[in-house]
Simulated scan of single mutants.
Amino acid sequence: MSTTKQQYRAELISGIRVLADFLERHPTLPVPHGLDVMAFPEPDASYATRCAEIDRIADAHNAELRDQDGHHTAHVSFGRVSYHLVAISDEARARHDALMSYLDSVALETATHADEQVNKPLDIPTADVYGRQCPCGALTDKGARLCRKCRSRGRWNRRKAPYRDEEEQW
């Protein structure tokens, strides 16, 4: 183990002991329901190598092994404190990355923005602002006598009119 890894390990263990002593000295402070410590062996190694390392450690310490959905784990409990060794396959990481790529695609409205939308009056054009009213009741474009739907229906009827006369003759 390199000096930096040994130093990091010593600092982490020391910090855990300091936390335990601090919580013991201050019994009125709230404590978490439990504590889960996760470790990932050799992140640069292959998935098979990481799984083999976890299996070796689990055998040596009677840890509970689990292999599910690309996560190979060993678990040791000390009451409400748990130690987990985890190896994640490249496929599981790719699935997670794909799922998280949609994270910014959905934006929920805040309550204040939704309230503003509910209380905002509808902007419905009136006949005097938009145009006048068609005989069918719809609003027309400015300068037009009929709405778009009635104009379209009129064009259709004019195109079909010559054929209608021929059908009636037969």
Score class of each variant (00 low, 15 high):
125 P>V: 10
58 A>E: 04
134 C>V: 08
85 L>Y: 06
65 L>K: 06
136 C>P: 05
95 R>W: 07
121 P>F: 06
142 K>L: 13
77 S>P: 07
58 A>P: 04
70 G>K: 03
65 L>G: 00
135 P>Y: 10
50 R>G: 01
71 H>L: 07
85 L>T: 01
124 I>K: 13
84 H>I: 13
91 E>S: 05
84 H>Y: 15
127 A>P: 13
74 A>Q: 02
124 I>A: 06
94 A>I: 03
100 M>P: 03
79 G>P: 06
76 V>L: 09
78 F>E: 07
85 L>C: 03
121 P>S: 05
94 A>E: 11
115 D>L: 13
127 A>W: 09
122 L>E: 10
119 N>L: 03
120 K>A: 11
138 A>K: 15
122 L>W: 06
96 H>Q: 12
116 E>T: 02
65 L>A: 00
53 E>K: 13
60 A>G: 04
50 R>F: 04
132 R>Q: 13
66 R>Q: 14
114 A>T: 09
111 A>N: 02
63 A>N: 04
67 D>A: 04
73 T>G: 00
53 E>M: 12
144 A>Y: 15
144 A>P: 01
115 D>H: 07
85 L>H: 03
118 V>L: 07
59 D>V: 01
104 D>N: 14
58 A>N: 00
95 R>E: 12
114 A>P: 00
116 E>S: 05
68 Q>L: 11
133 Q>A: 13
136 C>W: 05
140 T>Y: 03
82 S>H: 14
143 G>N: 10
78 F>C: 05
109 E>F: 01
93 R>N: 04
127 A>C: 08
106 V>A: 06
123 D>F: 09
100 M>S: 11
134 C>M: 05
54 I>E: 01
134 C>W: 10
51 C>V: 03
57 I>Q: 08
69 D>H: 12
136 C>S: 04
108 L>H: 05
58 A>D: 02
142 K>C: 02
84 H>A: 01
143 G>A: 08
105 S>Q: 13
125 P>W: 08
98 A>W: 03
93 R>I: 04
58 A>V: 02
56 R>T: 03
83 Y>Q: 10
78 F>Q: 07
73 T>A: 02
80 R>E: 11
136 C>E: 10
115 D>R: 13
82 S>K: 10
126 T>W: 03
75 H>L: 15
87 A>E: 07
49 T>L: 10
84 H>F: 14
132 R>M: 06
90 D>R: 09
107 A>L: 13
143 G>F: 12
91 E>Q: 06
